[in-house]
């Protein structure tokens, strides 16, 4: 009896594994910022093609490590690699675009009511403005009554691409921020409270009265946090949404950096959201497993073509058509051991 059960089980396992062998499986790991997007795409892709994508949101640094160690078919990072691309013989291309917003917890302030610019935001995050009724904040917020409560900063406690984007913008628009705090995935904040991941920052901001933090826009929306409107490069007051993020990509010169690794911060345009970033995919130029690399590229090809509505639903911005053409041209550089391109 027992033996029978075992043999049935073994049979089932064998049947399952042979099924799995028929459908292609793609593995990726990295940034948490685009993870909700990849999860949604993977679900739709499986329904459409039967192929499975396993994406592990372990952070941008982790994604870089895993692809270099060749444990995954692709790595994902919000923080583009510069010179290291050539050193590690990697190909990099953008997969999705999103925006970072400052979120505040000030009693009486509703989402989008408060206005910020790079200078004031930089002064707040370097600890030079310490109370909400500071004259510099009041000057760009006429008609908004702000309390005398102290400002508590909320930042990312883990190494994060969101921090890299946010500090890159603040450093670009506020020289003192650049010298005192610096730019990068981790920086030395002078005061405040750390939260793990976008979700951790959102939770801390929602719980600490008088706090200000920064998150990817979808997290602000989901948690109903009060985001601040921004005054952009053209001096216009803008609210974050997918059209404002998309506007940041219009004048961008994608080919000015290796692997399309440009910053989309502080771009010109009347409706442009000033803190915008692309999230990138990393793959080896010489494919050890050409079939798997081709499957991964097929997935992104499918996502560029069919994933636009899903992206907009989640408040991300799809990569513009013109850039996709250039990205797909760069895919020809991924070759197998014999030097044949894996992407046809």
């Amino acid at each position: 009896m027992r033996f029978n059960k075992l043999s049935i089980l073994a049979g089932a396992v064998m049947a399952l594994s042979s099924l799995a062998a028929q459908a292609a499986e793609i593995t990726g790991a990295g940034a948490t910022f685009p993870a909700p997007m990849y999860a949604k795409w993977a679900e739709a892709y499986k329904a459409a093609t039967g192929n499975q994508l396993n994406y592990q949101a372990i952070g941008s640094g982790g994604g870089q490590k895993q692809i270099i160690a060749k444990t995954v078919d692709f790595g994902a990072t919000d923080d583009p690699l510069g010179a290291r691309l050539a050193e590690e013989k990697l190909l990099q291309f953008p997969a999705i675009i999103g925006g970072v917003v400052a979120v505040v917890n000030v009693p009486g302030i509703t989402p989008g009511q408060l206005t910020m610019n790079g200078k004031v935001l930089g002064d707040i995050f370097r600890g030079a403005i310490t109370t909400w009724n500071d004259a510099k904040i009041a000057a760009i917020n006429p008609g908004v009554t702000l309390p005398a409560t102290p400002i508590t900063l909320v930042y990312r406690s883990d190494s994060s691409g969101t921090t890299a984007t946010f500090t890159d913008y603040l450093g670009f628009t506020n020289d003192k921020f650049a010298t005192e705090i610096g730019i990068g995935k981790t920086v030395n904040w002078k005061s405040g409270v750390g939260g793990k991941g976008n979700a951790g920052v959102a939770a801390n901001v929602s719980k600490i009265a008088g706090s200000i933090g920064y998150v990817e826009y979808a997290y602000a929306k989901q948690n109903k946090l009060a985001h601040a409107a921004m005054i952009n490069r053209d001096g216009k007051r803008v609210q974050p949404d997918d059209t404002a993020f998309a506007a940041a990509t219009e004048k961008a010169n994608w080919e000015s950096k290796p692997g399309f690794g440009i910053s989309l911060n502080d771009q010109p345009g009347a409706i442009t959201w000033p803190i915008t970033t692309a999230s990138f995919i990393l793959m080896h130029l010489t494919a050890d497993k050409p079939a798997r690399s081709a499957e991964a590229l097929k997935f992104f090809d499918w996502a560029y073509k069919n994933g636009k509505q899903l992206a907009t639903d989640l408040d991300y911005v799809p990569i513009p058509e013109a850039v996709v053409t250039k990205v797909q041209a760069s895919w020809k550089n991924i070759k197998d051991a014999q030097g044949n391109p894996v992407w046809k």
Binding site: I58, G59, S60, G61, G62, S157, D158, S159, S160, K185, W189, S191, G192, V193, G194, G195, K196
Partner: peptide, 29 residues
Amino acid sequence: GNANRLSGNLFAPGNSIASTLANEFAEAD
């Protein structure tokens, strides 16, 4: 509070060994 700052103030954010490991291990250099 996950803050890498030393403070004698017990109401200030700080960090413990275990929370530092949890926060930083995944992305450490």
